[in-house]
């Protein structure tokens, strides 16, 4: 069976750390930086478990600031 692998690219300077993408992700790929902040002082989102990503784009769909780009490949 073909396997779907995904990846996300997050614009960390644009992210405001609202946590909505973290909640929307069905496979628990994202989390907010526990300590690091961006230039505006927000704890930005990052992929802590990139292996699990399926490229469903749920995170990008709910992101209020359009920070997330989603990529997907099908491995045959």
């Amino acid at each position: 069976m073909a396997k779907v692998k995904g990846a996300v690219k997050i614009n960390q300077e644009r992210c405001k750390g609202c946590d909505l993408c973290v909640v929307a992700c069905p496979v628990d790929v994202l989390m907010l930086q526990p300590k690091e902040v961006n230039d505006r002082g927000y704890h930005y989102a990052f992929a802590h478990n990139h292996e699990a990503c399926i490229g469903c784009a749920s995170c990008a769909t709910v992101c209020p600031d359009g920070c997330i780009e989603v990529y997907r490949v099908t491995i045959k």
Partner: peptide, 9 residues
Amino acid sequence: IIKPENKVY
């Protein structure tokens, strides 16, 4: 995976 041809969103 992060290449222009794989972009979905």
